[in-house]
């Protein structure tokens, strides 16, 4: 019973974090049909940006919950510096090309960003220890959890619901939906598709840096965290269905619960389980749990 509960709680916590990391990836794919391999590096940059601000002499004196605002600021600044630049200057050059070429372009970009991280922040670990203790410990039955973990769950819910509502309940969302559905028809209807791409990509970058910024307190920040994040995000978004927000949520829970089950019951199988589930979903439902296939017209 305790094991079942532990699996459930661990799965939810881990799944929420995964969702936070992966939602930007699925959003960018949904709008732009780009599977952004550099998403992981952007996540890492978010973590470094937050660490830099929080550990700076100016913001370092800030205490209490306000630190969270500083971390958020780090994510926003990193996203605004990188998002528009990458979309306008780099990706735009390749829009005419195949989906798979754009995958390769972002792969090249991820290599560049990884080294940029090393050049700016060095190869040693950075830490943001303070905020992790902000919410104290939570005792549930015989198990202890760090309060910050539940803050991440809350953040994931807020970010997920917020993005979902913007997409489905606002005028901006309708425009974006129309581009998702068919960018050519949208263009013909007078929608500024270039601006939607700019906005969507920048927001996707922000979601990555946000996830990085709020993960920072939980980990040792090293240049390799991006590689690990992207490979997990791939599993999440493919399981859920590329381009689907709800799908990413389900995918994150599936991966979270599978990993938690493995860790509690069969620790050796941790990685194996995640990618076995991913393969199984691809096999049974190639478009993912929430994805849609389009039949080609001749």
């Amino acid at each position: 019973m305790d094991i079942a509960f532990a699996i459930f709680a661990d799965g939810i916590i881990y799944g929420a974090w995964l969702f936070l990391v992966a939602i930007g990836l699925t959003l960018v794919f949904g709008v732009m049909k780009i599977l952004n391999v550099a998403h992981g590096a952007l996540y890492a940059i978010g973590a470094y940006a937050a660490a830099t601000l929080v550990n700076s002499s100016f913001f370092g004196q800030i205490e209490g919950m306000a630190v969270l605002i500083v971390m958020l600021a780090g994510a926003v600044i990193a996203a605004l510096l990188l998002g528009p630049f990458l979309e306008r200057v780099l990706l735009r050059l390749f829009y005419e090309r195949d989906e798979i070429v754009l995958l390769l372009v972002t792969f090249g970009l991820s290599l560049i960003l990884e080294d940029l991280i090393k050049l700016i922040w060095g190869v040693y670990s950075h830490y943001v220890p303070g905020p992790y203790a902000l919410f104290g410990d939570v005792e549930i039955g015989p198990l202890f959890y760090v309060g910050y973990d539940f803050f991440i769950v809350g953040l994931a819910v807020v970010v997920g619901l917020g993005t979902y509502l913007v997409l489905n309940r606002t005028n901006v969302g309708k425009v974006v939906q129309s581009v998702i559905h068919d960018d050519e028809i949208s263009r013909a209807m007078g929608i500024n598709v270039a601006r939607v791409y700019l906005g969507a990509f920048t927001f996707g970058v922000f979601l990555a840096t946000l996830a990085g910024a709020f993960t920072a307190p939980m980990i040792a920040i090293t240049p390799t965290i991006g590689v690990n994040a992207i490979i997990l995000s791939f599993a999440v978004v493919v399981i859920g269905g590329l381009g689907s927000i709800q799908g990413a949520a389900i995918g994150a829970l599936v991966v979270g619960l599978s990993r938690a089950s493995a860790i509690n019951l069969w620790p050796e199988a941790e990685l194996f389980v995640i990618y076995a589930v991913m393969s199984l979903v691809l096999l049974v439902r190639p478009e993912g749990l929430f994805g849609q296939i389009q039949q080609r017209k001749i």
Binding site: L90, L104, V105, F107, G108, L109, S110, L111, I112, E114, D115, L116, K118, L119, V123
Partner: peptide, 12 residues
């Protein structure tokens, strides 16, 4: 710390 950057640019 920058050879990957070189490779990445090369790829692009």
């Amino acid at each position: 710390n920058s050879w990957q950057m070189l490779l990445g640019s090369f790829l692009l």
